[in-house]
Amino acid sequence: MKKLSYILLFSISTVFLVACGAYSFTGGSTGDAKTLQIDFFPNQASLIEPSLSQRFTQDLQDLFTRQTNLTLVNGNGDLYFAGEITGYRVTPMSATSDQTSAQNRLTITVNVRFENKLIEKDNFEKQFSFYSDFDASAQLTGSVLEAALDEILERVTQDIFNASVAKW
């Protein structure tokens, strides 16, 4: 009897979730949008990492295609993203007893213009920024740079996703 009640409860819960419309377990709601356009984000920062523009644009496209059912298009998308990378800087964060830097911080800032052609009140232009700390004795190349970019771009792209379709 107890097993039957669990099965019944599960069935009713499933019906309610399906009946309430398209629910996304990622927290993103794309409404009636079917297409997505993400333009190339050029690097306008004073210090330039050559691969950053391509990598950021690709990571943002990948996040949206993985977590939504939107189709990526080259023009006239229902949801439209444009912008530029405006900051790429390395700053010392903590000092040692001999007054040298013990840790550095890489910070990347991206300016994003989002346009929802179906719901204009959702449109925005915002700056998103995040950082990664690394040992000052390490050069910001190779695996150190890759690890920093992985951490920063994951956070920045997720913040953009949350601000545009998750409404967080």
Rank of each mutant, 00 (worst) to 15 (best):
M1T: 13
K3C: 08
L4P: 06
L4I: 15
L4Y: 12
S5V: 15
I7F: 11
L8H: 01
L8G: 10
F10Y: 07
S11E: 04
I12R: 03
S13I: 07
V15C: 10
F16P: 05
F16T: 08
L17K: 10
Y23N: 13
S24M: 03
S24L: 03
F25E: 11
T26H: 11
G27R: 00
T30I: 13
D32T: 09
A33P: 00
A33C: 00
K34C: 01
T35Y: 05
L36M: 00
L36I: 02
Q37G: 01
I38Y: 00
I38S: 00
F41V: 02
P42T: 09
Q44L: 14
Q44I: 06
L47Y: 14
I48C: 02
I48Q: 09
I48R: 08
E49S: 07
E49R: 07
E49G: 04
P50A: 07
S51V: 07
S53D: 06
S53W: 03
Q54R: 05
Q58G: 02
L60K: 03
D62R: 08
F64Y: 13
F64C: 05
F64A: 05
T65C: 06
T65M: 10
Q67V: 06
Q67R: 14
N69A: 15
N69Q: 15
L70M: 02
L70E: 03
V73R: 03
G75H: 10
N76P: 09
N76C: 06
G77A: 05
D78H: 03
Y80T: 08
F81P: 10
A82G: 09
A82M: 12
A82D: 12
A82F: 09
G83C: 00
G83T: 01
I85M: 08
I85L: 12
I85T: 10
T86M: 07
Y88N: 13
Y88P: 12
Y88K: 08
P92N: 12
M93W: 11
M93G: 09
S94T: 14
A95G: 08
T96M: 15
Q99A: 14
Q99Y: 14
T100R: 15
S101D: 11
A102C: 08
A102H: 07
N104W: 04
R105A: 12
R105D: 08
T107R: 11
I108E: 04
V110M: 04
N111I: 02
N111T: 13
V112I: 02
V112S: 03
E115D: 12
N116E: 05
N116A: 06
K117F: 07
I119H: 04
E120V: 13
E120W: 11
K121G: 06
K126Y: 11
K126C: 01
Q127F: 06
F128D: 01
Y131F: 15
F134N: 00
D135P: 09
D135A: 15
A136M: 05
S137K: 14
A138P: 04
A138T: 09
Q139E: 14
T141F: 07
T141C: 02
G142W: 04
V144T: 13
L145H: 05
A147C: 06
L149F: 06
L149Q: 08
I152H: 04
E154C: 07
E154G: 15
E154F: 10
R155C: 09
T157G: 05
T157N: 10
Q158W: 01
D159I: 04
F161E: 02
F161C: 06
N162I: 05
A163C: 00
A163H: 03
A166Y: 02
W168H: 08
W168K: 12
